[in-house]
Structures are given as C-alpha cells and as structure tokens.
Nucleic acid binder design. Sequence first.
DNA 1: GCGACAG
DNA 2: ATCTTGTCGC
Length: 211
Amino acid sequence: MTSSRFDVGRAKELQEVLASRVDKTYEIGSINNVVGLDVAYVKDVGIAVAALLNYPQLQLKEYVVVEGVVEIPYVPGLLAFREAPLMIKAYEKLGHDADLVVVDGHGITHPRKFGIASHIGLVLDVTSIGVAKNLLYGKVVKYADGVEYIVVDGEVCGLVYRWLGKNTYVSIGHKISMKSLMKLIPNLYKNHYLPEPTYIADTISKKFRRL
DNA sequence: GCGACAG
DNA sequence: ATCTTGTCGC
C-alpha cells in the first residue's frame, strides 16, 4: 500500500517555482505590530496560534487559536505543507493586518530557498521572517563585521542571532532585505532566547494542548 | 553509499 | 513536534 498521498516531488517543484517570487529587497517602513505564528500537536490534531503584539513594546494585544487534523507528514524541507495551512487560517482570523510576521521555522535558508516563513509571507502578501532553533540548510560564515551569516549558494540569506546564551537562526521570509532584517531583529527579543512573538505564540499553543 | 535533516 | 522526573546550572 502507498503510505501517504502527499506528493513530495510535486511539493518540491512548487517550492522551486515560488522561490522566484520572494522579495528580498524591500526596506520595511514603520512597524506598529508584529504577529507570531506557531503550532503544537496532540496526535494528528494541530493547534495553531497567531499572536498579535504591539511594537516596540511587544505586549500581547490579541490572539487566535485554530485546531484541525493535520494529514501531511513532517518531511525536512517541506514543513510548510504540514503547518502553513493552519497558521494562515489563524492569521486571517485576527482583527488586524500585521506589519511583520515571525514564523517558527526557516525562510530562504532552505534547500530551495523557500521555507515556511517565505511560503506564508508570499501567500498572505506580508513581510515575514523565519526564526528557527536549529539550522536546516546553508553554511554559517563569520564575516569581518563579526556577524555570523547563513550563506546559501554564495548568497547571504540570514544570520545567527544569539540571545541569553542561545542561538536562533534568523532568515529572510518575504518582503524584507537583509539590511532591514538586521536592523529589526534585536528589537524582537526580550526575556527569552526566542523572539517574543514566537515565545508568546508557543506558550499559548502549548497551553491549549493540555486542555 | 553515507550523513544531514526546521517542526 | 512529542514522549517524560528529577536534576544540573545560572
């Protein structure tokens, strides 16, 4: 019997096509709010959370929780097909649009330059960045400016951001340049090693997981 | 063929 | 991601 009806080959082809539509040159303007996206699970039921925080205070102003059965398996490089649908659903239920969306996972620091953060940014047509706890693809190179950049095929796609002694792998999602990303990133971290939007969304999703 | 491999 | 108590460290 065929294990899953998920076509890995087609999914990768789609990413290769959509990658060309990612905007890595946009210089972001003023930001008033940020949305953090994350998903927790109870067996095959996903619990997605979209947490809206004000900026630069980074205080939770509103959040949405969406649950649903997740059929797509986790395949490295194809995380978006498994988690993006619920995350997008949660985002769209918010009462406001976000100036920036922070996704739990990678953006273009990805085998085909199209990780979940880029996927969501493109679908929602919003500025997005990816923040992951581990590296998926690319090489970490320390430049003369002291920054540890994540290089993919000779292109700087993100950077390693260390906060409270731990590393996070930050990358361009969509509609943002490396310049803007670097200027913005320090303002997203507070009292946890993860950026506040991600931390808040993660906390809420895990809270609903035990209810 | 042998590793590596977001969440 | 999730399964899981106590325990080492800041």
